[in-house]
Amino acid sequence: MDGFLLFVISVGPIVLITGGFAWATTRARRRGIGGVSVIGPFQDMWDPGAARTQIEIEIQAEQTAPAPSPGDPPDADDRSDR
């Protein structure tokens, strides 16, 4: 019985912490707040590719569409020559 109790005391916190991070991750993704959540630093450590992808997505979302050139027609997609 002492061996089992020692096992639970030593492995229990690891399981609880890992489960807590998994719960926080799924909750943040469902709510759409994955970029600014508690798990951000841990995502950088364990999955740097996903962190770089998230940064690239945020950069592209903040970019504005380029202004049309002075010689462009008012609506380039609406051509009557089709």
Rank of each mutant, 00 (worst) to 15 (best):
E58M: 11
P74S: 05
D75M: 13
D72R: 03
R79T: 05
A22Y: 01
P70F: 04
T26G: 03
P41H: 13
R82K: 11
I59W: 12
I59F: 01
A51H: 03
A22W: 08
R29N: 09
F42Y: 10
E58L: 12
Q54A: 15
V11C: 06
E62N: 14
I39L: 09
P48T: 08
M45S: 15
S37L: 02
Q60E: 14
L16E: 06
L6N: 03
T25N: 14
F4W: 15
D2V: 05
Q54C: 13
I57E: 01
D47S: 14
R79S: 06
G40M: 13
P68Y: 01
G20M: 12
G34C: 09
I39R: 04
V38L: 15
P48H: 02
R31C: 13
G49H: 05
G32C: 03
P13K: 01
A61E: 10
P70Q: 11
R79V: 02
R27G: 03
T26A: 12
G32H: 06
D44M: 15
F4Y: 02
M1H: 02
A28T: 06
P74R: 11
D77I: 13
A22Q: 00
S10T: 15
G40Y: 07
P66W: 09
A76Q: 14
S37K: 12
S69D: 12
M45H: 11
A61K: 00
V11T: 10
P41M: 10
V15H: 09
E58W: 07
P70V: 03
R82Q: 12
